[in-house]
Nucleic acid binder design. Structure first.
Lengths: 227, 227
DNA sequence: TCTGACGGTTGACCAAAATCAATTCCGTCG
DNA sequence: CGACGGAATTGATTTTGGTCAACCGTCAGA
């Protein structure tokens, strides 16, 4: 978990387009950026654990971060997989003092780390910046609710089909995509055991889905839509 | 779904204490209240469906409202049960133009209905009001994430035990509570079929949980904690 | 008092997915 | 090139909870 103070061009672009920065004018964006430093993570670095004192919220610039909770036993459940452009723990700006879940880098990851007390001060001065944060929170809430609904009513193949449909590039009736991360991360994201994901893919094989490593081809999107 | 313009004392108090109003000074609270009208609902009234054009967000003053989504077939899953003091659909203020889930009153319910365009204008003028909305969104997000985590890692009896522990009043090692709504609503809230809730209660009987109608007694909280 | 509706419970059964174990695949490193 | 290690797959088994159907208790209305 080394630190640097510089962003490369790609990372700066990701940050600029993140929901947490969207719609801000130049000064506002600059003010928010001034609250942040950059963090380089190695795979499996734990950023914080549930219950830790909250000092920062984060925006993923590259790599992936998983958010999770434990229960009494050693078991843990993933809540979200954050991709480049996603922010997390911004819900603590106006609420709790401790993190309500753990966060772990799943790859070499680059993060923007925003100092919450600084952001609070900035928001007092320039409350319009809060609009971007509200938007980010809202999107995040909506997607979490959708995730909950799909956990509660869709089977594993349905969830996988839905993921494919929302992430593929269409090419006539056919479509294809390349997973941006290994399958075990996709399984976590969908709330499945890796084995269940594997079986879901083999179920979908009969519906025209071909999987070769991370490359996935869909022969007919409409077949997939009616699962 | 009749309308009135007046609040009784109890309803006014619930609104004043709602997260969406918390921490505002008198003027700010008054400004926000001016964006709202009151709505009286009969049981099973549908407030809106997924996809409807979003004009309002709501705060429950009495009764209960369930939020839900459908999938392709007739099936539907509950996302949240809103109780007095809870607001919903405030995530649309700065994002979508259509509701992302349906909402249905589960009882005679009284709601404050905030006109979103008016609230947007108000926020431009008095952006500090956004802080209360952000706090409400944040709490809402955290509780949805917790719900997702518990769906993914806890069994039915564990979820029920957790509900009891977080809602009971302690009395030494013992504790008790009275459900504020019928059991079928609790089942929806926990993402269970009513039968599964019933079975969970009978599992918990061996752990010192006694159920008589809506009245529940717990003989030893610590036994319940280690489930 | 009878009747019907409704919420809740119970039993039997089934489907989905977690778990455990064994094996295969694949990329990396010696 | 071969060996190793992590990821992915497959099979066997078990657990969990959904579904369907029957039944019970309570309450409201005839």
């Amino acid at each position: 978990m080394n630190r640097t103070l510089t962003l490369n061009g790609h990372e700066a672009a990701v940050l600029a387009k993140a929901a947490v920065m969207a719609g801000l004018d130049h000064d506002e964006a600059e003010g928010l950026r001034a609250c942040a430093t950059v963090l380089l993570c190695d795979p499996h670095d734990v950023l914080f654990e549930e219950g830790d004192k909250a000092a920062y919220f984060y925006c993923v610039l590259s790599g992936y971060v998983r958010l999770y909770r434990h229960n009494g036993d050693g078991r843990q459940a993933d809540i979200r997989i954050c991709e480049p452009g996603d922010s997390f723990a911004e819900c603590l700006i106006h609420t709790a003092e401790t993190y309500r879940y753990g966060a772990q880098a799943m790859d070499h990851a680059v993060l923007a780390r925003f100092h919450i007390p600084k952001v609070r001060l900035l928001l007092e001065e320039r409350p319009r910046i809060g609009k971007a944060i509200m938007r980010s929170l809202s999107l995040h809430l909506i997607s979490t609710m959708e995730c909950l609904a799909s956990d509660r009513m869709q089977t594993a193949p349905q969830r996988v089909a839905n993921y494919l449909l929302t992430h593929c590039v269409e090419d006539g009736a056919a479509a294809s995509l390349r997973l941006p991360f290994p399958k075990n991360l996709l399984a976590r994201k969908l709330g499945l055991a890796p084995e269940a994901l594997s079986r879901a893919f083999s179920t979908l094989k009969t519906r025209g889905v071909t999987v070769r490593g991370r490359a996935i081809a869909i022969s007919d999107i409409n077949v997939l839509r009616q699962i």
